[in-house]
Amino acid sequence: MRPFTKHTGLAAPLDLANVDTDMIIPKQFLKSIKRTGFGKNLFDELRYEDEGQPDQECTGRPIRKDFVLNQARYQGASVLLARQNFGCGSSREHAPWALDDYGFRAIIAPSFADIFYNNCFKNGLLPIVLAPEEVDQLFAEVAASEGAEVVVDLEAQTVTSPSGDVFEFLVDTFRKHCLLNGLDDIGLTLQQEDSIHRFEEKRMAAAPWLFLSRGQ
């Protein structure tokens, strides 16, 4: 997993509460055999006027011009400003996969749906909970000046607004450690590589028939 330490990026404001995972990535795209490539269909129904199909080329599709990510000033955004209960709905990991694939590194909202919040950490995406008035201020500052950037510092647990105000946020110590070091579950388990090898040797001695190679 890609580590997250400090990130400075263009912020895009998505002024909508209760954004669910179906909005983030509609069901027809779950047929994909990949964990990548969902970015072009991120927020598909909010973003395009037609109904998207898997494997469809999206460049020629009619877009909803008023949607935030379709506006020229937010091209290249990597921090998403959102409203309460972001990511509610299903447990599909395709939702964080799509946000990550689009290019987002962090999402700032007053609250997140539980499962989505968890899934983000598994995918190197940082969900940040700030107080509602702090989120309001960020929305206002970002709207006021084109190209406004925010700074997210995970080590310091702070978000710095375009005007320089610093907001602190909370994050679970263990999750912070994993994200700072780019450790996913697999990475963590692999830290126990020696224990696994030791166990395997013991098991191989006790049950050698389990370790024979299989021919085709």
Partner: peptide, 15 residues
């Protein structure tokens, strides 16, 4: 689940 499938492939273990 799929994440665990990957976990087992990579580590031979499951949490």
């Amino acid at each position: 689940g799929t994440s665990e499938v990957e976990h087992v492939l990579a580590t031979q273990c499951l949490v």
